[in-house]
């Protein structure tokens, strides 16, 4: 089967300093994949390189067997919440409609059909009642839901999400997890940058451990081992590995 996402020898550098070395990856479709690693491990960079936001120094990316630049229309992207100015003069609906812009084509205007789709996506994340609200007047969790709805509006087959759980309340986190499971059940592939080791096992069926390179990639059961986590997070983070062990012991 064609991988949903495939990279070969992907290397990315900022100001000539490599932050991600030789990433070889083949993500089979229909999986919910957690991308994990310590701060500065290159998780966000990996996503940005796949999305073509930062140019790689070497290597290539294929999405559903096609060069990434041609297949970006099949990819939905959820950036980190802090990456935008939430005082920007748009409301919730405006942001979600942006998910449709890619399909509309240059110079084409948003129509009734787009609004219908956007409303449905807002409904899915429980934000429809706030559709007319200015985005500055949202809580962190609500802002994250808006970004999620925008990605849903892209109606993609592959989703890349950069820390959708960062700084959100427990209700939002649960809602997002349900949504991700639902997407997976519909055959979508989702890659999620995640920080919390304690919930990783429960959320994801595959894990990608990154620390400037790919440390491990595979089924969660195989990858979530003390040895591999130790290798990813390094000896200095013994507390994390202890937590991981505890969680594992709890089953």
């Amino acid at each position: 089967m064609t991988p949903a996402l495939e990279t070969h020898d992907l290397t990315v550098a900022y100001h000539k300093r490599p932050v991600l070395y030789g990433v070889d990856l083949a993500v089979p479709p229909g999986h919910l994949v957690g991308i994990m690693g310590p701060n500065g491990a290159g998780k966000t960079t990996l996503i940005k390189a796949v999305m073509g936001i930062v140019p790689p120094v070497s290597g290539w990316v294929k999405i559903f067997g096609e060069p990434a630049s041609r297949a970006l229309g099949r990819v939905g992207y959820v950036p980190q919440r802090e990456s935008v100015d939430w005082d920007f003069p748009v409301n919730v609906m405006d942001v979600v409609l942006m998910g449709r812009y890619g399909r509309l084509g240059l110079g084409r205007r948003v129509g009734a059909k787009e609004r219908e789709i956007a409303r449905a996506c807002l409904e899915k994340v429980g934000m429809l009642p706030l559709a007319d609200r200015q985005i500055a007047n949202l809580s962190g969790g609500q802002q994250q839901r808006v970004f999620l709805a925008r990605a849903l509006a892209q109606e993609s087959d592959l989703y890349l999400m950069d820390e959708p759980f960062a700084g959100v309340d427990a209700t939002t986190e649960a809602a997002i997890v349900t949504l991700l499971q639902e997407l997976k059940a519909r055959g979508k592939t989702i890659l999620v940058v995640h920080h919390d080791l304690t919930s990783a096992q429960q959320y994801f069926d595959m894990l990608l451990l990154v620390n400037l390179r790919v440390v491990a990639f595979g089924d969660t059961a195989e990858v979530f081992t003390e040895e591999l986590l130790q290798k990813t997070y390094g000896g200095r983070l013994t507390i994390l590995s202890k937590i991981a062990q505890e969680v594992k012991n709890q089953g």
Partner: peptide, 21 residues
């Protein structure tokens, strides 16, 4: 004519790039 393009590129430039703007 290009209002929506300018809008998305101003609000979220990285996202705009990923949707081919």
């Amino acid at each position: 004519v290009f209002y929506k393009e300018f809008l998305v590129a101003s609000f979220d430039v990285a996202f705009a790039r990923t949707i081919g703007m």
